[in-house]
Structures are given as C-alpha cells and as structure tokens.
Design a protein around this nucleic acid. Structure first.
Length: 113
DNA sequence: CCCTTGACTATCT
DNA sequence: GAGATAGCCAAGG
C-alpha cells in the first residue's frame, strides 16, 4: 500500500467524519474540501476502504439525491439513517435541517413537494 | 498500453 | 426537469 493513496484516504475520511449531524455533502464537495478537486468518483472507494465507522450516509449526489438504486436495501438504509438525524426528503432530494430561510418559508406556505 | 468500470458532475437539449 | 453527452480519474483486466 503506497503512501500517496493512504494520504488520500485519510484526507477523505477526515472530511467525511467532520460532516455535522443532520447535514449532507456531495461527493464532489467532500473531494474538494479534502484537497482533491475532481476526485468525486474516488470518494466512495476511499470510504469503502475505511475500517472505522464513518457517517458515509451523509454523502449524497450533487443534486442531493442518493447515489444508490432507489429499489435497493442500501438506499432505504441510507435514507432512514438520514431521517433519524432530521434530514427530510422532498422529491427524492435530501433536505438538511439547516436549509435556508427561503426554502423553509416555501415549505411552510406550500408544504413539502 | 488500451479498454472498461464506477456510491460522480457540469452542461446542453 | 428528465436524458444524453462529455469530462473526470484511479483501478483492474
């Protein structure tokens, strides 16, 4: 196992571990925050290589949908873990608790949809 | 070295 | 907004 790839993994792990409860980051955002722009596709692999418990479920697509097949068990598991932290889902998109005022107002006025 | 595979993304129809 | 398309980049065959 080379030093370089190990450094990459650690950077990704640290970044994912730093995502606050009830919030989500996209694969691209994690990669960029870790100091490796354009490495979105490598984030999942790095997380898979982790042996410690990471909040992997707080990482979603850039459009806030989940990366798995909606019919799969893993998709349901991720969705449930997020909902347990207060994250809601509107049209398949994860909406963190810390959403902006406009979204909150619209939701109050028009309901989730 | 070429080709295929992804828990991806930005952009254009 | 859903598809298609073209970039992206490390791994493995």
């Amino acid at each position: 196992m080379s030093e370089a790839s190990n450094r990459f993994d650690r950077a990704i792990w640290d970044t994912v571990a730093s995502i606050p409860r009830g919030q989500v980051l996209s694969y691209g955002e994690v990669a960029r925050a870790a100091g490796y722009p354009r490495h979105a596709r490598m984030v999942s692999k790095a997380m898979s290589r982790s042996e410690t418990a990471l909040p992997w479920y707080r990482v979603v697509r850039s459009d806030r949908t989940l990366a798995f097949n909606p019919d799969s068990d893993i998709y349901q598991r991720q969705k449930r873990l997020l909902e347990e932290e207060g994250v809601t889902f509107v049209k398949g998109r994860a909406v963190s608790v810390e959403s902006d005022a406009k979204t909150d107002l619209d939701t109050l006025l028009w309901g989730p949809e």
